[in-house]
Design a protein around this nucleic acid. Sequence first.
DNA 1: GTCTATACGAGGATAGAC
DNA 2: GTCTATCCTCGTATAGAC
Lengths: 208, 208
Amino acid sequence: MDKTDGVLVDDERGQTKAELTRRRILDAAAKVFRARGFVGARLTDIATEAGLQAGSLYYHFASREALVEEVMSTGHRRTEAEVRERLATLGPDADPIDRLCTAIRAHLLAVLASTDATSASIKMIGQVPPDIRERLLDQQRAYGNLWRDMLIDARDAGRLKDGLDLSIVRMTIIGALNWSVEWYHMEKGYPEKIANDMATVMLQGLLR
Amino acid sequence: MDKTDGVLVDDERGQTKAELTRRRILDAAAKVFRARGFVGARLTDIATEAGLQAGSLYYHFASREALVEEVMSTGHRRTEAEVRERLATLGPDADPIDRLCTAIRAHLLAVLASTDATSASIKMIGQVPPDIRERLLDQQRAYGNLWRDMLIDARDAGRLKDGLDLSIVRMTIIGALNWSVEWYHMEKGYPEKIANDMATVMLQGLLR
DNA sequence: GTCTATACGAGGATAGAC
DNA sequence: GTCTATCCTCGTATAGAC
């Protein structure tokens, strides 16, 4: 499984040719899937983007679905990694609200300003076949728990409004963050500003 | 265009057999598209659900894409209609914050507790071919303006925090509402509670 | 490892009977 | 209007040469 490890490093030392090509295919696939969605992305498109023929993909991947799944899995793993890293910089006993704010910002920036795989994974989660979807949701459970725990900590510290269902709150926040892939376009956006406004609205509300 | 009018009435008087079948197909399509997504929904499934054979669909619709587009268009129109109706009950010079709160609740309830077409239209907006997508986004512009105007009114009344980009706020709110179709399941949900918590979080924030 | 060529299945779409 | 039967296109996947 060393293919799934070093995924975040772009260091080429010690990579066989096959591993490099495999990586190139994954990048191409992420780009095409992000742009065209699960339906619209053809293996021919992906192969062309990666600089080879459609048939050649099968030397590296067992099927179209295997390719999709790895792209999405990688995308989610990156988002989660970025959020956890940013949280780690706060130290273990940071203020729970600071942690929430940091997570909101990190998740949004990961989704908008990071790789194609991250937004592809969000855009396609509602489209992939049930078995793939199931495995991906399993994988995302740990990440969901991270958010759940942050919210519980904040509530236990007496910082949240009473009576809110924290599951609903969690899905509301993550939903707003994720939906940004549907409307954000590189030309017109300032991810930092979006992250700030979203954090403000979700934590303090939009009312004065 | 009397097909697109009476869409909300279930009154059968004056409807030809063809019009009734057409309606039945649209309902079946909405259900199948909602459940299986744009990719997974086959014409065979839709036809079966509507109680006829795949080939027969073509008497009523020119193509699969025409069918998709009408389902989505109808779905969005219903959401918009429900929100506008609820706003209308408030009267023309209601408090701008009441209007926002009402719109948030109405949009969510329309999406979660209403017909298959409403959630299908949201789930598939990121999946359909560019030309269809373009026309649907055009259609949605008027609805976006409704939200934009509500936010502007609230700001002009001095009720919103300073410095927020109202476009970002609008997309944040609508995004959170729309994303609910990805996580809500009929069994476990209480749309009213979800609507309340979402309105609270977005207007007043989740902090105490 | 990557190519070319091709097999194969699936599903959208059409034709004609009824 | 709806059926059955069939065509046709497209894209995934495989085989074998290089």
